[in-house]
Nucleic acid binder design. Sequence first.
DNA 1: CTCCGAATTTTGTTGCAACAAAAATAGAAT
DNA 2: ATTCTATTTTTGTTGCAACAAAATTCGGAG
Lengths: 234, 234
Amino acid sequence: MAEPSMEEADGLVGGSNKVMGLGDRAYEDLKEKLVRGAYPPGHKITVRAVAEELGYGTTPARDALNRLVAERALVFSGPKTVVVPTLSLAELYEVTQMRLRLEGLAAEKGAIGAGSADIARLEAFQGEIDAALAEGRYADALWSNKEFHFHIYGRANMPMLLATIETLWLRVGAAFNDLYPEFAISKYGIQNHRAALEGLRHGDPQEVKAAIETDIRDGYRRLRQALSERAPKK
Amino acid sequence: MAEPSMEEADGLVGGSNKVMGLGDRAYEDLKEKLVRGAYPPGHKITVRAVAEELGYGTTPARDALNRLVAERALVFSGPKTVVVPTLSLAELYEVTQMRLRLEGLAAEKGAIGAGSADIARLEAFQGEIDAALAEGRYADALWSNKEFHFHIYGRANMPMLLATIETLWLRVGAAFNDLYPEFAISKYGIQNHRAALEGLRHGDPQEVKAAIETDIRDGYRRLRQALSERAPKK
DNA sequence: CTCCGAATTTTGTTGCAACAAAAATAGAAT
DNA sequence: ATTCTATTTTTGTTGCAACAAAATTCGGAG
């Protein structure tokens, strides 16, 4: 049973072979820290700081930064300053629109030919989400939520699509990690996931697609509200 | 009248400010060469060759290569070898599916609020396409075609979306440039563009979206056929 | 207390040499 | 001829120092 493995080398390895250099390692490390919310939005990230923090030289650190900037997981606030991004209302809307199309596509294609093994796996993820949520382990719930989504997307066998979706998740993850936990998942999310599972059981890709889209829309509403309630912050 | 400017610094500069270093220049140069078909698919690209060819040091050349690889405009054929990619049928299908969703979105949003100035501009682009086509200047036709599409997309004011679409165009452009000219545009394309213009005049975003999607689908069919007819090549 | 400008520190970039590893090449054996 | 192996060349990566430019700090003027 082949694991979709969203833990692969971030999408660069799309079936090709590439030696993992320090630069890629640094990229993975930094990405991990970003998505885990190690730095608050607005925090300045410098090449030398990353180099020392991760224990690599300045070249790999620079490579990682450049890559993250290209993916917009980090943004310039000045000619020479990169910071963890903040998502404006407009940007959140834009990312959501892209997610709807792209993840809708991935869900639809991924649903085709899904078997009971997939369903069992997804139910396991959902169980982890429920458990984590019940115990207040929001970070774990978020992680399992990601696994749930990407297990479906991964089945589509569309590496480019998957990589693009991942950058979108990284974009919102990095910007919202400071307030995400409380808002990210709720009974709505659970309900949408159950709907997706139903669609999988029925062998109806459109039903799965619709459920995922609703999930994205629900998340958008919550994020949007969180954003407007967020104090203008000194 | 603000120019949408698809000639901007490749999408990195999404409203932020960033100093253009040699690395970015090298990236632009290489990208240009790729989209112009300077290298045939399968051609090996090395850091030092690029450095000398473009007249930069090895560091900027390496930066450019890394970035192009991250965007999949260049791919690894071995642990240390990057080549101009070939698009498999599966990859062409994947790119097309993504283009349909993303460019459909961009067309729909870009159509909203389009005025007579936009229509005039688009008609001018179409005129250039017709003229170039009539005279056999396929490269120019391709260029004007790109301008036509991106003028609409640019109106949507969605920088992330636009950057993503551009990488998709680069991906197929680099892989197909050797046989693209004869197949890229035909009376179908013209007809689709006219339909898009009609939608713009009616102020009907859905009509524009449908026209663009048909355009993408027509192009896909032609490319697909060209791909299967392509000799297995020694 | 605020604002502005000069001095100082920090920071990204670039070229380069050294190194390890991969790719190309040449040759030998079957 | 073909395949496999050894040798040679090519190639990407990395660390580092120097440099120009930007960010920050600090004072002083209003």
